[in-house]
Each structure stands twice: as C-alpha cells, then as structure tokens.
Design a protein around this nucleic acid. Structure first.
Lengths: 216, 216
DNA sequence: TCGAGCCGTGAATCACCGTTCACTCATTCC
DNA sequence: GGAATGAGTGAACGGTGATTCACGGCTCGA
C-alpha cells in the first residue's frame, strides 16, 4: 500500500484550505484586493508563504476562488429574496434590495469583488460575477416587462446600468459612508427608488414598492 | 549673469513637456492606465526614460496631469453643452448627453481616467474627476428640482448613481461595444432615457427631451 | 570662442511580490 | 522501530517597472 491520507489528515488539509480562503476573504474585506498578498494571507492563516502553493497553484487561482465564493453567496441571496416576493415588480425590487443592502453591509469586499481591477486574468472572473448579477436582474426586468409592468427597453443595458448605479451610488468611493444603520437603510431605499424609476416605474409606485420590501 | 533660458529653449522645454503628456494620454487611450509606463511614454515621445523625470517628479505626477487634463476638457464640454440648452431639464439632458457621448467616443481613455484603479495616491485624483462630474450633474439636477421639474431627492446621491449608470452601462467592460456610430448613438440615447427617468422624469417626457438633444 | 552650467541619456539600482526549492518535520505503512 | 512519502518551511530567486545618477554634449553669457 503506497500512502493513504488518514481521514484526520484529510480533514486537516480541508480545514487549512478553508483557512487560506477565509484569510484571503478577510483581507479583501479589510483592504481590498491589493491587500490580498501571498505573504499576508499566509501570515493570517498561520502558515508559511510556500504552503499556500500546496493548495492553490497560483495567486490568481486563489483570488478566483475568493470571487467565486462571494459571487455564489450573493447570487443565492438575491434569488432567494426575489423568489419570495408576490409579483414580478416586487421580485425585482426585492432582488435589487438584496444586492444593494448586502453590498453596502460588506462594502469593501463587494467593491473588491465587483469593481477593483487587479490582473487581466482575474478581471475575467470578476466580469463573470458582474455579468451574473446583471443577468439575474435582467431576468427579473424581462419578467416584469412581458407582463406590461415596464415599458419596452433594452433589458441587458438596463440591468447593467442599474448595477452601475448601485455600485457607484452606494459602495463606490464617491458614495457617502452611512453613519448608522438607519442612514444605510435610507441610502438603499433611495437607490432603489432611482433604479425602479430608471426602469420605467412611476415615482409613486416605486416608493410604494420600496416601502414594502423587507431590507436585510 | 548666471544662466538664463533663451525664449527658444523655454519653448522647446514646454513643447517637450507637452509631448510627454500627449504620449501618456495616447497610451492611456489605447491600452488603459497600465499601458502608461515610463519607458513606453519616453519611447513614444522620442526621449530617454530619464528625461521624463526632468519634467515630472514622479510617475504619479504625470498620471495626475493626464487625469487633470481629461477632467478639465470633459467638464468644459459638459458645461458648454448644458449652458446652450433652453431650460433646466434640457440642460440636464444636454449635460448627460455630452458626458455619455464623449466618454463613449473615447471609451478606453474615459475608463482609464474614471474607473481603472492604479495606485492609492492616484485614486485621489481620479476621485476628484468623478466628483467634479457628479457635482456638475448635481447642480443641474438641483436647478431642475427647485423649479419643481423633478421630485424631492438626495441630489448628490442621484448624481453619483447617474454617473455610475453611464460608466457601467456605456463604457464599462460589461457594456456591449457599439458596432457603428448609429448603434453608439442609440446606446447613448437609451442610457439618457434611463438616467432622466431615474431622476423622476416621466417616460414620455424623457424620450421627448432625448430626441431634442443634439448628440456630439 | 571659451568656460560654466543645464539637458538628455540609458544603464544601473532599487523595491516590491509572486513563485520556487532544498530542506526539515510529521505521518503512514510494514 | 525504521524506511518511505507527503506536508510545511522560508530564504532566495526572478521579473517587472519606477527611479537614480554620472557622464557627454549643447546652449548660454561674456
């Protein structure tokens, strides 16, 4: 028999890989992508720099894993929020609320995963994340549009613009840092009203929809 | 008398500084900020790398100058477009059109100057540019709002969101590359309709305003 | 036309990070 | 217990790209 990992070892290896990922996520959440450096990740995970390469072939793979993790988590949350809404328009509102609210709560991480460029190879993964978020929104917009709840429009472009408005108006460096949870809630609601109006919902209706959506 | 630059020399020095700036602008327009490297800039300006440092104390200063140049040019164009409009709402529309249309025409340069992160020290300057654009929009929004042409809203946040929607929906990596000038014009018009609706202009009115604005 | 600086040069230097690798230590198997 | 193999280490390496600097030539003032 050659050599076989004990179950114990397997567990430890898995735990270590997880620890590396967690360390990278934490660093990204604190200092953005530029803080995700092999030496820093290793130090945070209490291992040596070389050890990281036993688990990830390159830094890009590690960062890719970080983005994929965030992406999966956020998409799931968005879908879950939208799926529990009673109608197409409130589903759209709920999806936007989930994306915007969660992004604002983890602002730096969201910025790092969505917008902060790193490397051309990484950019592709980050783009996938953006595209996935936009596609999810686009599907909800399309659903509302086919039911005549929204005017005719280029659904893909509209979704991209909404993502941009949220990113820039809420989590981007230009957006004001909300002082307290109340201010954050108001900021999310304001951006939601704008997003819904941008898609063609009338002002009063948009405010009504926003008032009904449960914020995270 | 110690040493005094001849007028001729002064002219040559100024021309060379301009050549360096122009080279940097061209490189940014072609390959984004990462293409702006001292060696490349020098080569493009037909000088040696070291010479760049006779004119700019550091690369950051050079990049800062590039951004400031773009910023001044774009702000001027935006103001000029808005100022010739007949009323507050069409001034707003004209400003948005100028920003969006010009950004789309020089997509890579706009992206480099607006969004592509480089260095923390540079980010500050880039932020100033974004802030200036947003402030210009905010002033136009405020003017329309005080005349009851737009609903009550947080003008600063609204302006930031509009900038985000334009950047993301038009010049960001997610935006589709317009195949021809006609497609580009349509893309600009679509984003304008969305921006105006987001600010509280009714759908039909927004389309009317957009139809009247002269696109660059 | 002659010294005295400035201008331009570009190879060398420096700094920063991702990546490697020769080695030590731990675990597995017999 | 002891050989075999994998895991972990961290100093050293290498590539990239900004910055420096000693030197040659040009321009200035006289």
């Amino acid at each position: 028999m050659p050599y076989c990992r004990t179950e114990n070892v397997v567990r430890r290896l898995a735990a270590r890989e997880q620890a590396i990922l967690t360390a990278a996520l934490a660093l990204a959440g604190e200092g953005g992508m530029e803080a995700v450096q092999i030496a820093a990740v290793a130090s945070r995970a209490n291992i040596a720099a070389g050890t990281v390469y036993r688990y990830f072939p390159s830094k890009n793979d590690l960062v890719g894993e970080v983005i994929a993790t965030v992406s999966a988590r956020e998409l799931t949350a968005m879908r879950a929020a939208a799926d529990t809404a009673p109608g197409p328009l409130s589903a759209l509102a709920a999806g936007i609320a989930a994306f915007a609210g969660r992004a604002l709560a983890e602002r730096k991480l969201a910025w790092a995963a969505l917008a902060e460029p790193v490397d051309a190879a990484i950019d592709v993964l980050r783009l996938d994340f953006r595209r996935a978020i936009a596609a999810e929104l686009a599907a909800r917009i399309e659903a509302a549009r086919t039911r005549q709840l929204l005017p005719e429009q280029d659904v893909g472009a509209a979704a991209a613009a909404v993502v941009g408005a949220i990113v820039e108006g809420l989590i981007g460096p230009l957006a004001p840092q909300p002082a307290d949870p109340g201010a954050a809630r108001e900021a999310v609601q304001a951006i939601m009203v704008m997003a819904l109006r941008a898609l063609g919902v009338m002002d009063a209706r948009a405010r009504g929809l926003v008032a009904q959506v449960a914020l995270p």
